[in-house]
């Protein structure tokens, strides 16, 4: 499993968080329990399986919603 921390542009509405959470959770290969959208620090934290999914695909899913991804970090866990 990989642990990803994705920094987004500043989030301003709590429902943005809900949208992003739903979008990320719907991706195959994401550990649904691990998905955490930090509204105030505008970050998404999640665990995913590198065999099924790539960080680029996760970033794409978020930016498709209209939220800019600023930086992401992936760490082996």
């Amino acid at each position: 499993m990989q642990k990803a921390i994705i920094q987004l542009e500043t989030l301003t509405c709590p429902s943005c968080g809900q949208k992003i959470e739903n979008a990320v959770k719907s991706l195959n290969g994401v550990d649904k329990q691990s998905v955490k959208v930090l509204f105030n620090s505008s970050k998404v934290k999640l665990d995913f399986d590198l065999k099924i999914l790539s960080i680029e695909k996760i970033e794409k899913a978020i930016s498709a919603l209209g939220y800019e991804v600023k930086k992401s970090q992936v760490k082996e866990i």
Partner: peptide
């Protein structure tokens, strides 16, 4: 976009 991920937002 919200509807696509099944969220009924204020928008």
């Amino acid at each position: 976009q919200a509807l696509k991920v099944k969220v009924i937002s204020i928008d």
